[in-house]
Amino acid sequence: MTLPNLITIARLFMVPLVVAAIGAGRWQAAFVVFVLAGLSDAVDGFIARRWNMRSELGAYIDPFADKALLVSIYVALSVAGALPGWVAIVVVSRDVMIVSAIVMSWLLERPMAMRPLAVSKINTAAQIAFAAIVLAANAFDLPLGPGFDVGVLVIVVLTLLSAGAYLALWLRHMAV
């Protein structure tokens, strides 16, 4: 058990806290916990790389913690009425598709290692930034204006591009 893994596990415990805060309408608390979760992700990655504390456990739980946080945030923001429900469905569907493809390849005895694609990294960064903006707008009563619609469009387009890229990769792998 390394320090980065402990930080990642702490991030996992932040997921229900931020969701509960959103559900209770405690937007400032939700924003603070979300920012702390984001900082913990940066810190655990820095420590793991800087002091060579990478581990197999960390390779699994870090992306799991990231996805748990993002999926939970988008669903909670949707349920709270801060995001359209269909946006959460797009975000969640992409992740379900990726996990399903991995499980299917494993069941068909054609396992494949999934590595983050560039479009996926951009998508994740955009999803985090947009969730933070929506949380901040609710926490500090800031108007989003037309930037909200632009943000939704960017998130949906990037999520669909990322899903398509992973689907193409998976199809090529399964065809060989």
Rank of each mutant, 00 (worst) to 15 (best):
M1P: 02
P4V: 06
P4S: 03
N5M: 01
N5K: 09
L6D: 04
L6T: 06
L6E: 02
I9E: 00
F13H: 08
P16F: 05
L17D: 00
V18W: 13
V19I: 13
A20F: 13
G25V: 07
G25P: 02
R26T: 03
W27H: 01
F31C: 03
F34M: 10
F34H: 10
V35P: 03
L36H: 08
A37Y: 13
A37E: 09
G38S: 10
G38C: 11
G38Q: 14
G38A: 11
L39D: 01
L39F: 14
D41K: 13
V43K: 11
I47Y: 07
A48R: 07
R49L: 02
R50S: 08
M53S: 07
M53Q: 15
S55K: 13
L57S: 01
G58N: 04
A59S: 15
A59I: 07
D62L: 08
D62W: 04
P63D: 09
K67S: 09
A68V: 04
L70Q: 12
L70Y: 05
V71W: 13
V75Y: 15
A80R: 15
G81D: 05
A82V: 10
G85T: 03
V87L: 11
V87S: 02
V90A: 14
V90S: 08
D95V: 09
V96I: 14
M97Q: 07
M97V: 11
V99Q: 13
I102C: 02
V103A: 12
M104R: 15
L107M: 15
L107H: 11
L108D: 00
R110S: 05
P111C: 06
M114K: 14
A118Y: 15
T124Q: 12
T124M: 14
T124H: 14
A125N: 08
A125E: 10
A125V: 07
Q127A: 04
I128M: 11
A131C: 01
I133H: 02
I133C: 00
A137I: 11
N138S: 12
N138T: 03
N138W: 10
N138L: 12
N138A: 11
A139S: 05
L142A: 05
P143S: 11
P143E: 11
L144A: 06
L144S: 03
D149L: 06
D149R: 01
D149P: 07
L153G: 07
V154S: 00
V154I: 09
I155N: 00
V157R: 12
L158N: 10
T159M: 08
L160T: 07
L161D: 06
S162M: 10
G164M: 01
A168L: 14
W170R: 08
L171E: 01
M174H: 00
A175I: 06
